[in-house]
Every structure is written in structure tokens, then in C-alpha cells.
Design a protein around this nucleic acid. Structure first.
Lengths: 373, 373
DNA sequence: ACGACATGATTTCGGCATGGAACTATTGCA
DNA sequence: TGCAATAGTTCCATGCCGAAATCATGTCGT
């Protein structure tokens, strides 16, 4: 299911994919086009099997019943792969980015050719289990990705200037798309998550690191060059590995938090333990969690001040932090309120497990096949 | 000189206005169109007198000499008016936003009708001295402006929900455009200042308050709802009038700085005095200036982290701060360097006097007549 | 001096997307 | 059974664009 389609037609398919099935008349209104234009654009999409007419809807009022158009999500198969230095996470999805299958393997050596082989292998196994050809494959890595082609710098994999897309494309049949991992998550939110209704939003992820993605005017803004991990919170705060006092990563990353609690209790603890201890009333863990959540709140406040986004999505594998530290998060947000008097709370929380990263990679594949604009 | 022109044609005029005179062939390349399109678009512009052909340029190579096209800046007259609670600043400019005339009067009472009359009066006097009709008038105020029509909330003028554009339009012949004052400055930088070469940049102004403007993807992002004035710098810093400790406005506004030095020396001082004292080695003034410049550096760092802009313009009537406190500004920027390793310094300084605000208002008028896209 | 050549500007022509007007299709209601 | 209302389609005028051909104007070699 991969076809060449006129330009505006893809925009119709994308809009249905993101904002749900609708009649031609409604689509014309939403896209600001005329009814004839929609008839024309929809025709090849129906012929290609990208869209189908579903059962006509008889509105209670009068008039001819409308025929909603919908995508056929299961006519498509995408695979998303997220690389970390420890594991390779992969998922198979349909066009709605719904996860149909998944596989996780330990990372091979970090040598480029070994990683390429491992990715090709996991993709081939998922393709076999899907029982049909894949429409596209998306791969995401932590680090700086240039032009969707080259891993310019990845501190996690210790790679620099690796033409990863070309190397992957040589090993597999479907088209391959490459992106930064946070960009993938951001795109997933933009099309299939809380960003659907907003042209502007920010994504802040909490976990082993602090991730930040920004979408303005429906476009992903490249911000990875200057990450939010080292945003200054308190010049008298704890130290991060880079020697900064009180930057974001000195407060809210899981290594920072577990290390702080471990030091207090003279024993090793896991991240979940830290949150459980804090929930159970342990004073040291409570303090660490509250300071982290407070710092997160301050970051949220800074983001709204500097970007003016109307929505901020909090997520990441360590997202339970915002449940346990809810009050401190709120206090951090309100410490410097500025003049904000908006009615709705712009912050939403998106739960997450590690496969969500791979799903983000699958969305990179989907958006590769359906490029926006 | 006000004409109705096809849509793409205005884009050509705007591009010449911003990026200078060029031949049709060059414009075709820059705008991504074909040569025939350019010939067609240029024709009505020449007929309307918006553009003129200047002397043909004989390139040292071979071929027919190219004929540069340029705008006729002095075929246009715009007036920009900036309102403060103390004064009304107004300038007359041509299409290049070059100041040809200016006038400043004390603000009348802050009552709306009195202000409308005062603005109409100053515009009429400038029009008279210009000796011809005005093409448009731009007015800017501090505070929240909605839709370019209504002053929704201005703490300085103590206005709320004033349909200011309509009231002004009733009193004068030329079209009137209304905007926030920092938006006006931002637009002036975008078209005629350091923003010309960048699609994305931020503007940070220093003076009686702290102003912030953001342009992403050639569009001015509305950020005034949540100003940067109260961006958190140090939770142990000085107090601002809103009760925040260590926010931007507690460090870098001229009232904050003069008050701090006045307290140290037990006597009233002006803003310029503070800077002179610091330059002359006065310890207290030096400290206040350095802390302010350091906070400004931290804000610059936060802006690059969170917006990813490639350029930040520092300006405002108190901009001398960055000269006197240059070292501290630099230290503040580098305190939390993140992963930035870009070659060029994104920060540029734009000198400014108070008429610059009125010039920003004139640019609002110019962009009103030549709307972008 | 004159023609070959190179390049910019212009004109012609056909393709293509768009949207308005008119028309058909389907439904509920009088 | 007509009428009103809404959905979808067909037809056509319009406008914008770019490829190719043409014209204009310069340099350079012989």
C-alpha cells in the first residue's frame, strides 16, 4: 500500500488520519476548500484504497445523508525502531500508530555495522510476523540527526557523522526514515496524541535524561542542538555531571534522583523505589522528588514565558514523578506567575512506557510516507 | 500611493524592500519562482510606481546586462506613534522606515478620548509638515492588544477592552494599525534590522521593563500574554514589585537597578548614573550592573535552549547595560552552556533611543499596507 | 567590423488547481 | 406528491505557473 498521489490529496488523508473521519462537506469546511475540490481530491484516494466511504449518516435534521470518509488503517504496516546503548526497541503499527506487535533485544556492540545488522534483523522478524510487506520503517536515536540522513553526533552511541540512513536503506526493502528520538515522540504527540488539537505545543520528557520538543505553527522546531537538560533552575542547587549547579538534569533525571536518595540512605535504590519511598513518607525521598517536581514546574513556567505555547505535554518513562510530586510541580509553576490569566491549564500528562519511544519512531515512518505540506 | 495589487506581486515588493534591489532573474532565484512569473508580477508594480528600474548593471562576465529593480521609498509616508503614560512619541518615515521627522509631546490625561485627540493632533501636524497624504499610521502601546483592534489590557495606561483602533480611525483619514509596542519593535527588526537575514530570532529589550519578542519561521509569535519579565533567575535574589525573588525584572529593569544603588549610597541616582558609577569603579553600582547583566545572560541562554533561535537581538533604551556589564553578560550566558557548539555568536546588540519605539510603530503601519503572505 | 556565444528579459502556450454555478441525489416533512 | 434542505457531482471560467521559444543586449574571438 504505497502509492503516488497528488499533493493536496495527501493533505486530505492526513487530516482524516489526525482529526477523524468526516464527510466531504465537513472536510471542505475544515480545510477551507470548496466542495468540488474535495470531490476531486477524494477520488484518487478512494481508487487507491487509502480512503473508504463508511455507512451514510442520516442526520436528525433534513437533507441528504452524508457519507463519512475514513482511512483504512490496517491497509498499512509500519515498523518503528528506537536505539539506546542498552537495547533495541521495535514495534509494528498500522496507519493509526496503534501497536500490533513488538520486540526488544539487547543492543549488540555499538559498532555501526553491528547495529545496522541488528536493526535489519529485528525489522525482518517483525515483517515476517506481520505477514506482508512494510510500507516504511522509522528509526530514532538520541543525539543530533542531520537532514534525516546522518547521525551527526550521538553521545550515547559514541557515533559521529554516521550516514545511518544510507547504511540502513542498503539492508532493507522498505523506505527508511531517520530522526532524533525526542523528535519522534513529538511527532507522535502532534498527530496521534495531545498535540492533535493544537498548532503549538511543547513536549517535556522525564527519565534517564530530560527531553524537549517544540511544535510551532504545526512545524517541529529543531531544538536539539541546545537541549533543555541544562536549563538553569537554581545556582545553589546540586551538581550535574557537566559541573553545573542546579540545572534541570541535576534535579529531574532518574540517575540524579536515585543517587541523591542513595547518598541519604547509604544504599542503592531504584527510580521506582525513590517514588515509592516518597509516597510512603520517607523524608529524604520526599525532598528529592519535590525538588525535582518543583524544577519541572519552573521549566514549564519558563517554556510558557519564552515560547507562548498553549499546551505542554509531560511524558517520558519517569513520568510517575508528576503524580508523586504533583503539589511541588504546581508550586514550581506558580512561583513566578507572570501575567498569565488563561482559563485552561495548558499542562497535560501523557503516560508512557519504553515502547512509546519505538512508537515515536513508527510515526516518523508514517510521516515519511505522508509528508506534511 | 496606495494601490490594490495582486497577491504575489506584493511579495516581490516586500522582498526587495527587505533584502535590497535586485534584477528579475535574481529575484526569481531568491523567491523560487520562474523568470516569466517575475516579469508578470513586476509589470503592475512598475505601472503603479511601486518599483522602478534603476541603471542597468554590466556584469564583468558576458551576457545581457541585468536591470535591478528597486522600491521608491520616498513615494510613501508613514507615521508611527508610541504611547506611554508620560509621553507620546511620533515619527514620520518613508517606506524604508527611515525617520524623516519626529515629534514628542507630554501625554495628556490617560482618559481614552483625550489620548485619541492627542494622537490625531500629532499625526495631523506631522502630515502637515510632510506636505502630503499619509499612506498609513501605526500606533503601539504597552499591554495586550487583541486582533490589532482592541487594547484588551494595558497596566500602564490603565485601560481595559478599549476599541482603540476604531476610535482612532474615526479621527483620521489614513488607515490605522494597532499593535503591542514590543511587537512593533520586533517587526522593525524583522524587516529593517538584524532579523532581516534570519527566519527565526528573538528580541530582548532592556529599560523601564523587560520586553520580549519572538519570530519563528518569519512569523511573529504572540508571547505577550506571559511576559519574560518574571522569568526566574535565582530564587534567592532581590524582590520585584510582584513579590517574586530573583525574577528578571528584579534585576535588569532601570527602576530595580537605580533603587538598589540608591539604597546602597543613601541617595537618589539615575539609570545613567548607575552605569557611569559602575564604569568608574563604584563597588555597589558595579555589583548591581554585573548582576543585571548576568541575569540577562541567563535569559539569553534560556531563550536559545527553549526556542532554538539562531539569533538574539538585545536592545531597549537601557541597552548600555550590555556595554558596561559585558563580561558578566558573557559569564551568565556560559554558566549553563548545554551542548551548544555553534560557530557564530547568535547575540547582536542594537542601539536604541526612545524614538526607536515610534519607528517600530511606523513599521506596524508599513506591514499593514504590505501584509506578509 | 562582424558573427558566435552567453545571458537576461519577454512572450506564447499549455497544464493544472480552484471555485462558482448549475445540476443530480437523497432525505424529511407538509 | 411536491417542497425544502443538505450532500455530492459535473461543467466551465479563471488565474497562476512554468517550459520553451523568442527577443534584446552585452562580450569575445577572428
Amino acid at each position: 500500500m504505497s502509492t503516488h498521489l497528488p499533493d493536496g490529496a495527501k493533505a486530505v488523508a492526513i487530516d482524516i488520519l489526525i482529526h477523524g473521519p468526516r464527510s466531504r462537506a465537513q472536510l471542505a469546511k475544515d480545510l477551507g476548500s470548496s466542495a468540488p475540490t474535495l470531490t476531486r481530491l477524494v477520488k484518487p484516494l478512494l481508487a487507491a484504497g487509502v480512503l473508504v466511504e463508511t455507512d451514510a449518516v442520516h442526520t436528525p435534521g433534513r437533507g441528504r445523508s452524508s457519507v463519512p470518509l475514513d482511512v483504512v488503517p490496517d491497509a498499512w504496516r509500519f515498523v518503528g525502531v528506537k536505539l539506546t546503548s542498552e537495547s533495541v526497541y521495535a514495534v509494528t503499527t498500522n496507519l493509526r500508530a496503534e501497536v500490533l506487535d513488538s520486540e526488544t533485544i539487547p543492543a549488540p556492540s555499538l559498532e555501526v555495522s553491528a547495529v545496522v545488522t541488528a536493526v535489519a534483523g529485528i525489522v525482518e522478524r517483525l515483517r515476517g510476523r506481520a505477514g506482508r510487506e512494510l510500507d516504511a520503517v522509522g528509526v530514532t536515536v538520541g543525539g543530533l540527526v542531520e537532514d534525516g540522513k546522518t547521525v551527526a553526533d550521538s553521545p550515547f552511541l559514541h557515533w559521529a557523522q554516521v550516514p545511518f540512513r544510507r547504511l540502513l536503506a542498503a539492508e532493507m526493502a522498505p523506505p527508511v526514515f531517520l530522526a532524533n528520538d525526542v523528535v519522534g515522540l513529538t511527532r507522535a504527540q502532534q498527530w496521534f496524541g495531545h498535540g492533535r488539537s493544537s498548532r503549538d505545543f511543547a513536549l517535556l520528557t522525564v527519565g534517564a535524561g530530560v527531553g524537549y520538543g517544540l511544535v510551532m505553527d504545526d512545524r517541529v522546531v529543531p531544538t536539539t542542538v541546545s537541549p533543555v537538560s541544562h536549563l538553569a533552575i537554581d545556582p545553589h542547587g546540586p551538581l550535574c555531571p557537566w559541573g553545573h549547579r542546579g540545572c534541570m538534569s541535576s534535579y529531574v533525571t532518574s540517575p540524579a534522583m536515585t543517587a541523591a536518595v542513595a547518598q541519604a540512605h547509604r544504599r542503592a535504590v531504584t527510580y521506582d523505589e525513590v517514588l515509592d519511598l516518597a509516597g510512603g513518607g520517607d523524608a529524604a525521598a520526599r525532598r528529592v522528588v519535590d525538588e525535582a517536581a518543583h524544577a519541572l514546574g519552573r521549566a514549564v513556567s519558563a517554556i510558557t514565558s519564552l515560547t507562548g505555547v498553549e499546551r505542554i505535554i509531560l511524558s517520558g518513562e519517569g513520568i510517575r514523578l508528576v503524580d508523586v510530586g504533583r503539589a511541588a510541580l504546581h508550586a514550581g509553576r506558580l512561583e513566578y506567575p507572570g501575567a498569565r490569566a488563561s482559563g485552561v491549564d495548558p499542562v497535560v500528562v501523557r503516560p508512557m512506557d519504553f515502547l512509546e519511544w519505538a512508537r515515536g519512531a513508527a510515526v516518523v515512518a508514517i510521516q515519511g510516507v505522508f509528508p506534511q505540506r
